[in-house]
Structures are given as C-alpha cells and as structure tokens.
Design a protein around this nucleic acid. Structure first.
Lengths: 110, 110
DNA sequence: TGTTAACGTTTACAATGTCAACAATGGACG
DNA sequence: CGTCCATTGTTGACATTGTAAACGTTAACA
C-alpha cells in the first residue's frame, strides 16, 4: 500500500529539499529547518527520515564524488521524486483547507 | 517538558475543533476532516488523539447532558485551550514559512 | 600518525497514528 | 417489558513516525 500522507517531519524535510535544490544533503537540510522555523534536529533524525522516505520512493539520493574541498566524508545528495512532490502538494492543500478562514489563528498572543 | 510541536493528525483535529466552535465532539470532528480534505478516519482514531491532547492540556472537554434529541450516548464536547491555540499558530507559521515561495508546489500534475 | 572537521549510519526507544472490538444510552415497536 | 437499532464514547493493541547517542568514514593538516 503506497503512502498517502506525510508525517509532520517528513513534510518539513521534503520542503527543505525542494528549497535547497542542488545542494540538498543532510547538513544543509537540518540547517534550513533550523534557520527557517527554529527547529534544531540532530543529524541522525534527518538521516533516518531521509532513508525512510527513500524506501517509500518519495526521494532518491546519490553520493557525491568523495573529493570535496576541505576533506570530510562524501555527501549524499537528495532529490524529490514525483510521488513525493505529489504528496507535498496534497499536504499543503490539506492544511490550507483546514485553516482557511480561521480567524483564531491570525494573531499571536506571545 | 511541555509539548512544542503538533503531530500531523493532532494539528488537523485541533483545526477541526476550532472550525466547529460549539458543536465540536467526536463525530462532527471526524466528519469535518473527511469533508474538507477527504481523510476518512475511524472514530477511535479521533478519540484517542483527543484524549492525548487533553492530557497535554491543549484542549478540554465536558460531557453534555445525557438527554439529546433522538437518544444515544452523551456527547463529549471539546474546546481548544490557550496552549493548544498557541501551538496551532506555530504549526501554521512553520509550514507557511517552509513552503513560502516554493513554485514547485503551486500546481498539480495529477 | 594522530587530531580534527565534516559527514553518514546504526540501534534503540519514545511519541503519534490507527482501528477492531467493545460498552453505554435511550428510542422505537412488537 | 424485552429486543433491536442508532449514536456516541472507550479500551487494548499494534504500526508508523520522530528522535538522538554513539559509532563509523574520509581526508586535510599539524
């Protein structure tokens, strides 16, 4: 049975990959999520989520050539596949539809 | 440690309660989610989620007087509390921020 | 050669999502 | 009355997703 919904974190990670385009690998994905919405997740969290999404066919990955300026391990770059994109669209539509017109969410008290 | 994020379903249920206002109990909550976004969840799913959210202090509930037109068991009505509202606002802001400006999500291929 | 920096992977567990099956309550109706 | 039906809530159990500590890999550079 194929996936029909995205978990909360899955959605965020997918969006981060889309934002990053060509430079989407673990570290920048985590950084993007932290920068944008202040959610500081461990690398492991990101990687495990990426691995699962790859199993589901939502994204695919490719190792970079081991040689990167400054040394360090090879990077695993991710791209969003069509099923992933479709699910992301549906999630966005679902949330938008559910909060559409809800005045209670407009302002913040904090 | 208080909750800082909402799960995907928790968020949807919270939004449904806000939409329903005074008439927010299990059955209409499930119906609202199904009507709006085509997600058909069992009553049990909704109730368990509501119970957990009540434990976290995100919502509160009150049983209706047992007498309702047409018989049946008493209803448990829900309201969203301040912490729940605050979290809902944050979730909305987080998703919006993450998908803001992403052209890939504008149109659907299906 | 061993330290350090930048990555990825494994393992394990906590939190959330999900439903089948069951229980409660009262109306209809013979 | 007792049985069936409609409406709602609850329990118990399990699948999926969220999360990080600890560990492995690679290469520059002291």
């Amino acid at each position: 049975m194929p996936k029909t919904t995205l978990g909360e974190l899955e959605f965020l990670v997918l969006l981060a990959i889309l934002r990053l385009g060509d430079s989407a690998y673990g570290v920048p994905i985590a950084r993007e999520i932290d920068r944008r919405i202040g959610r500081d997740l461990s690398r492991a969290t990101i990687y495990v989520t990426l691995q699962r999404m790859e199993e589901y066919g939502l994204v695919c990955s490719e190792m970079s050539e081991p040689r990167d300026a400054g040394g360090g391990r090879a990077r695993r770059y991710y791209r969003v596949l069509d099923p992933g994109l479709e699910l992301a669209r549906r999630s966005k539509a679902a949330y938008s539809t559910m909060w559409e017109g809800l005045a209670a969410l407009e302002e913040s008290t904090s």
